[in-house]
Amino acid sequence: MRRGMMAAVAAAILVSVLGLTACSSSSGGSSGNGKSLGQSADAIQKRGVLKAGVKIDVPKFGYKDPGTGKIDGFEVDLVRAVAKKILGDPNKIELTGVTAKTRAALLDNGELDLVAATFTITEDRKKSLNFTDSYFTDGIAIMVKKSSGLTGLKDLDKKKIGVAKSATTKARLQEKADPLGVKPEFLEFDSYPEIKAALDAGRVDAFSVDGAILYGYLDDSTQILPDRYSQEEYGIATAKPKTDLAKVVNDTLAEMKSSGELDQLKQKWGLK
């Protein structure tokens, strides 16, 4: 109890000190835009490049083209927008491929400035990282063939749903299916391409995983059903002490939201 209070006091002091530094530096700025965006942003300006972690295996969000070696996607564009805000140039970015395991550690040790990598905002994670407001709402979704006429979980009684091994998809869907009296058969595969191929070949009736991943496999003959069977909000994460940077990133996103740029980007990547 005592220790908890001490930690709270320490955190309060830390936050106020950081807040003060952020305020004070914003008044006496020295950036190209004429006004400083904070200490962390200054450091990035000094370095001349924004270091960001993105996914490299989720098409449309962050995907490394095997042919060209270039990383592109919706989240990469968000990183570019932040780079434009801080450095005045959307191309001054250095991208690193991250996974669910590495992304928090790379922020902690200062190797990355921010991470935009289908990172779900949770209360637990907020304790150790700063998150922006959500820029994309996602959740477990279902992909079916357009020709199948299937419209939702309720239609999937006795149908085959392809899911990935070691994912929570099966349990979540089962929870939602039980009250509907729907009993789908789950077939587990080793990787997403196999599930998509199984869907195309007619081996399964539906392909279910997080929507972000499904979007990467969307094509002319398939559709993603509108329902979500869990709710995940994606946010851009920064290291806990860099609250000033978190604010800059969040402001950038807020501006993009109100100007409609965010929606345009989603449109561009086929995420609407």
């Binding site: 091994k165 070691s166 349990a171 587990e188 199984a198």
Partner: peptide
Amino acid sequence: AMIAGGDLMYYTDSWSSD
């Protein structure tokens, strides 16, 4: 197990990852 064949390996894999 690689084609969701319902054999021993498939269920071992599926059960243990759950």
